[in-house]
Design a protein around this nucleic acid. Sequence first.
DNA 1: ATTACTATAGATCGAGTAA
DNA 2: TTTACTCGATCTATAGTAA
Lengths: 223, 223
Amino acid sequence: MSILKPYLLQTLKELALLGAMRNKIEISSNELAKQLQTSQQTASRYLLYLDNGEMITRELGIKKQLIQITDLGSEALDEEFSEYKQIFDLPSKVVFKGIIVSGMGEGKYYTEQSGYVDQFKTKLGFIPYPGTLNVEIDFIERNKLRLLKNYGGIIIDEFTTKNRTFGRVMCFNATINMSKGAIVLPWRSHYSHILELISPHHLRKKLHLNDGDMVEIVIYLDE
Amino acid sequence: MSILKPYLLQTLKELALLGAMRNKIEISSNELAKQLQTSQQTASRYLLYLDNGEMITRELGIKKQLIQITDLGSEALDEEFSEYKQIFDLPSKVVFKGIIVSGMGEGKYYTEQSGYVDQFKTKLGFIPYPGTLNVEIDFIERNKLRLLKNYGGIIIDEFTTKNRTFGRVMCFNATINMSKGAIVLPWRSHYSHILELISPHHLRKKLHLNDGDMVEIVIYLDE
DNA sequence: ATTACTATAGATCGAGTAA
DNA sequence: TTTACTCGATCTATAGTAA
């Protein structure tokens, strides 16, 4: 049992609320059942599942049992807590997971235009390594992209060369697998399922990334 | 549907992570299913349940649907978040609910011993009204008592009179229904389901308490 | 007291499919 | 494409009870 079913996570949470993360707590299946508003048998079964999944340790006496949450159990709770922090603390960051894909090389062309480079330097604080790192995000997560655009980021203004016009883009400071960079969203364009990242470093090389690798991108909203 | 089943709360959480607390999000039951790692039918059913429970609003188009979390839904998530905060943020206070019961009068004897009274005055800052107010807590909550003892409180040392020895006790500043006082835990003794409170005032009289009345006790750890 | 098994009742899931 | 129905399969809950 690797990923915890919702009702088992809730049970683990109740145990944590009773102090089982810091100490062994003495609790009978009947008492837990009362807390969970279910039957003694169900509470007993849940404890067995959690024990099998190594989320808790138990010391069974003739009466009661001493229960403590394991490191694995704490991690499960911590992950859940992180998600709630993301929901409520939002203004600070948005997290995407995605996989590395190859672009069509046009990223290099754009990121070398001095009209963009100068602005990147003053507004983002770095000169990007030529090219963009393209990360394909889960289709569903484009909802988060809409959120970003609504929220607003760092604006890179359009400019014109003697040949053509380069459009406005919106940037957000971001990290990819903890490395500093920024994502770049074309001002006009529908929400795509590809995120384009720029960075002062050659990310593929620095992070040893290949197509298909899973990466985590954290986007910072508070500039 | 008043209280949310665990799997529905998880679904609500996923929607919130996709931004549905701040905006309408566009999502198909199939996409949600993928996110929840379940079937399209189940995702659809969950959305119906959440809609019926007024946790979300939906606008169904010919494709997709626009979903936003209602105030009721936000509250449900916020409550869950609070519980996680309680687990992870080191608690600065512990809350008990219990009912007033009568002791056997020995509280008065102890709280009048000058060996205790002098220490109460210097370490707690008040001279207790003679007697203890006894509050019976939910049996399961004695786990929280263990937490308290591990955490450590204000120590009142043992002392000896010409007749006998009075044992060490541990105190915590506390309020009972917002009135100032302290709880007193005998150093040796197993965790009981009775809390003994002392206070500068005659609490029964001041708060018009009778046996069987429900009271709330807040114990402060940071001191 | 307990914990936790068995057996059955009940809830939930998802393939198939209509609209 | 969608959403969401039906209904048999599967999972979960609990009464009864042994240890």
